[in-house]
Design a protein around this nucleic acid. Structure first.
Lengths: 352, 352
RNA sequence: AGACACCAUUUUGG
DNA sequence: CCAAAATGGTGTCT
């Protein structure tokens, strides 16, 4: 009997200035590769992203090979266990950096149990590491992602960012889960507070006000750019208000669900509204096949959904009071991917 | 007559590893400066020494400027008064550390009455603090003192210990935990299966066979390279068998423990054997001073120990059936650091 | 619990 | 030559 074949993915991140615009890439020994970019990021965020994306893209056992001790040692030395125990603070009791990336990544690795990590020295000493490096540098320079199914011709990839400008990213491959509507170019994702914020679970004046604000914003955006598509996760709160607003304005709505039937534990009224929105949506995308088995796996799946949206949408509206810390993490992640194309909407408060 | 001019002396201490080889320095705004070194010291001792030497060298009123709250607060907050009152014990009733340095220093300051202290932030925020820092780093690297009567050219002083003055700085960069025996050049580390592999916890034929194989291998290696030193972590299983083999062959044994007393949870027989091996070892190195508080922290400490060994040893023998996956990870890590100097030994199986 | 310092490690850049 | 992004640890006091 043959050994189970373990995929080997080399990953690397790059950054033009630190912080600055950056790129990540992975390249597997069996051919497939992918890359992505972020407008305003750090070297460490790109190294994490490269590894995370490599794992996301592999369905079976995988060995991630990185030149970053930051990434490798997190798992090899079990840093994440300390972070969990101390409530996401590091050994100096400061908040763990890049938690928005680490948390879904670590959850994913631990759920799968078939991911291993290996460190390689990073200075042109390893040919495959070099390939990943060039891809990441190219993504940094072009600020666009790309992917392919067989290893690119290394000699055609520029070593330095200036040579890479304007490469048309040939062979770019669409995520098969993307809807037919072009959300990559025209998608406006809506995120924000969930109950009990925004006045609670039932219809109420604050929610109504937020919906009105969203309608105004979407109308204005629609004037500027007629082709826009509204993308919503349809979670309770701001996401459903955004879907309401899209329908009110007459814009196409794409619903992106983390897993099938996320409404199973909601109240009857909430489920009815959810089903109405699903029916009204132009398209529905479900990212993962299986529903979660526990609250923590549900949280991880939602985090993966947020990350997927951040990667695959053109801009975002975040309904946020500028205080709620979990939304602060989301805001950072969104800006990381979308740069200036993140818009904030503060819910009107009626305390005064 | 002129106003009494108060001398201002900036002081700093450095240390390559803590504890480790160190250096101290002071530099006065009016020009004079001096530095000194110590082979095996701590950051705090060097900070005290720098201030002490600065006061000794000044005949008149002096202001000592340090980035160490340890030094400044002793006088500013009057720690020393409490120490005197309590008979040189601190607030937790433990003996005051570095009393041999503190006692003459405090006496000198109190006799003179013309010494004041000021704290500055450390990190290149103050130019004169920077000068003292560079001098201390240079003294650490060269392990020699120096002095002058006018401020040195800062730009000629290295920021980084590795770049420091030509002298190979014998041992300056050495990990202070390394044993005197040269395991970097001649160390053969032994790793491998742990119980219940190799036939279980008790003495048994498989273990005996592995020990015999190890004896053969070590004898052969010893023929080729007479100076070799066997390095073992003394964990149950292959590591202890390797230590047995080293003693049988008459090779020096260095025991490398991840933390103190790793045998606390073992059976009586296992502990006796462990203690015998410790007693027979030429040297014992303990990498971390605190025992772990949970199984997962123990696992992390062991992983750190493995990584330390991989970095600090010349070659390794891995007793491995080529199947056990956690040893596969170790094998990858070892080959990563040692390249071809990793030798595999498959335990004889008596299952047919 | 707090504070300062001293390091160790790797990458990313200018 | 320099800095930034991050992690882990020890040395010490109150």
């Amino acid at each position: 009997m043959l050994d189970a074949v373990r995929i080997v993915a080399y990953t690397d991140g790059a950054c033009s200035g630190n912080p600055g615009p950056g790129g990540w890439a992975w390249a597997r020994t069996d051919g497939p590769w992918a890359s992505g970019a972020a407008a305003h990021t750090t070297n460490q965020r790109m190294e994490i992203s490269a590894a995370y994306e490599a794992v996301l893209a592999a369905s079976g056992p995988i060995e991630v090979v990185s030149d970053s001790t930051y990434v490798v040692n997190c798992f090899r030395d079990g840093w994440w266990e300390g972070w969990h125990k101390r409530g996401w603070t590091n050994s100096r009791k400061e908040p763990v950096a890049n938690r928005d990336l680490w948390e879904p990544f670590i959850d994913l690795v631990n759920e799968r149990g078939d991911v291993t990590f290996r460190w390689v020295k990073g200075h042109g000493t390893d040919p495959m590491n070099d390939v990943a490096d060039r891809l990441a540098v190219a993504a940094t320079a072009t600020q666009r992602g790309a992917s392919g199914s067989s290893l690119p011709d290394v000699s055609k990839l520029p070593t330095d960012p200036i040579g890479a400008a304007g490469a048309p990213a040939a062979g770019a491959r669409r995520d098969p889960r993307l809807p037919d509507l072009d959300i990559v170019e025209s998608g406006v994702a809506i995120f924000g507070h969930r109950p009990p914020d925004l006045g609670g679970y039932e219809p109420n004046p604050i929610s109504d006000a937020v919906r009105s604000q969203l309608i105004e914003v979407l109308e204005a955006r629609h004037q500027l750019e007629p082709g826009i598509v509204v993308v919503s996760g349809l979670r309770l709160g701001a996401e459903q208000l955004g879907a309401d607003a899209a329908l009110a304005v007459g814009l196409p709505l794409v619903a992106v669900l983390p897993y099938p039937d996320p409404d199973t534990r909601w109240s009857d009224g909430a489920r009815r509204h959810f089903r109405d929105l699903i029916d009204a949506a132009a398209q529905v995308v479900t990212l993962e096949r299986k529903p979660p088995t526990s609250p923590s796996t549900a949280g991880a799946a939602l985090a993966r959904r947020d990350a997927w949206l951040a990667r695959n949408v053109a801009s975002a509206i975040l309904v946020w009071d500028r205080v709620n810390p979990s939304l602060a993490g989301l805001a950072a992640s969104l800006e990381d991917h979308l740069g200036d194309d993140v818009w904030y909407l503060e819910p009107v408060s009626d305390r005064r």
